[in-house]
């Protein structure tokens, strides 16, 4: 079987990332001629009906008080016990932080390799042959083809895989409950507080992100970015240069070690476009670069570019916007 790790929304349904993994698992199971199974934490709820439409034959539910707060190490330990008992050909999980952590723990318990951030999984042609995966490196700027040589193949799937629209022929999903044996004497981290984020536009939800880098010149230079973002209904971001100099908080950083965004329009102001930054904005639908250097990588990769100083170009754009919208 191909075992699929399901993350659940607050209402118990599979998350969007889990739906993507289920699609990948179905594809892989078809190639192998084996059934698709799923594993989730908690009660069944409507999950069996939902999973039946996605081609799942078996649902394993992990139930234990220590699993309630989503601890990746407890989930990983429970998962390793299920995998050791079921011996699936492969275990696929969403490439989210939490599932990657749980899979890492499970892989360590089982003594097997784990391929993270996979975009493709190719089983060996004959049984027992090593599999191959393609995974993302350096935030996705590079792809790596790798051999995954293990009796049970553990992999996490990079979010964004296509989900087929057609549903599988509905059939009965058998439900199995596993109460894992989690050693109470092992020291564990415990969730003690959870605070919801204040509502409002964030870098990941904004349709437009106006971001500044070295060319903005300092914290005082940000007023034009804020003003332009306000006029077009966007959020303000920045490059690592800006956060390292203390011009803006790290929460505003777009990049490999900051936030990865996919707005309709990314306005890159005075940002040269080093790899570390590029992987954070390369999924934008369109990019407008404002830069004094016409050869800057951000300029040559942008949809549109204006060659010039941020502090000349942006005030003129703001004035023109105000003139046209009468504000």
């Amino acid at each position: 079987m191909v075992l699929t790790v399901i993350e659940r929304n607050g209402d118990g349904t599979p998350t969007a990332e889990s739906a993507e993994v289920l699609a990948a698992a179905r594809d892989l199971a078809e190639q192998l001629g084996v059934p698709v199974a799923a594993v989730a934490v908690g009660d069944a709820g409507d999950l069996p009906d939902d999973l039946a439409k996605r081609g799942v034959a078996q649902l394993h539910l992990l139930q234990h008080a220590l699993l309630a707060d989503g601890s990746p190490s407890c989930t990983g330990e429970a998962l390793s016990q299920l995998v050791a008992a079921q011996r699936p050909a492969a275990v696929l999980a969403p490439g989210t932080d939490r599932s990657t952590e749980a899979m890492a723990w499970a892989a360590a318990e089982l003594g097997v390799p784990l391929a993270t951030a996979c975009t493709e999984i190719r089983p060996g042609i004959r049984p027992g042959e090593p599999w191959e995966v393609t995974r993302e490196r350096s935030g996705g700027i590079l792809l790596e083809d790798a051999v995954l040589d293990a009796p049970i193949r553990l992999a996490t799937v990079r979010p964004g895989a296509p989900v087929p629209s057609e549903t599988a022929a509905a059939h009965e999903v058998t439900v199995h409950v596993l109460v894992p044996d989690l050693d109470a004497s092992v020291p564990r981290a415990r969730l003690v507080d959870r605070r919801p984020r204040a509502a409002g536009m964030t870098l990941t939800t904004a349709p437009v992100v106006v971001a500044g880098g070295r060319g903005v010149g300092g914290a005082d230079g940000d007023a034009v970015l804020e003003e332009l973002a306000g006029l077009v209904g966007g959020a303000v971001g920045c490059s690592r240069v800006a956060t390292n100099n203390g011009w803006r908080p790290h929460a505003d950083q777009v990049g490999l070690t900051g936030t990865r965004i996919s707005p309709d329009l990314y306005v890159a102001c005075g940002i040269s476009g080093a790899t570390q930054h590029w992987v954070g904005c390369m999924n934008a639908r369109s990019i407008l670069a404002v830069n004094t250097d016409p050869e800057a990588p951000m300029v040559t990769r942008a949809t549109w570019a204006v060659i010039g100083d941020v502090h000349e170009v942006l005030p003129a754009v703001i004035a023109e916007l105000r003139r046209r919208s009468g504000r």
Partner: peptide, 13 residues
């Protein structure tokens, strides 16, 4: 390339 400097503003808008 939409233009150079402030003169590019109408094209940007």
């Amino acid at each position: 390339v939409l233009g150079r400097g402030a003169a590019a503003a109408p094209a940007v808008v």
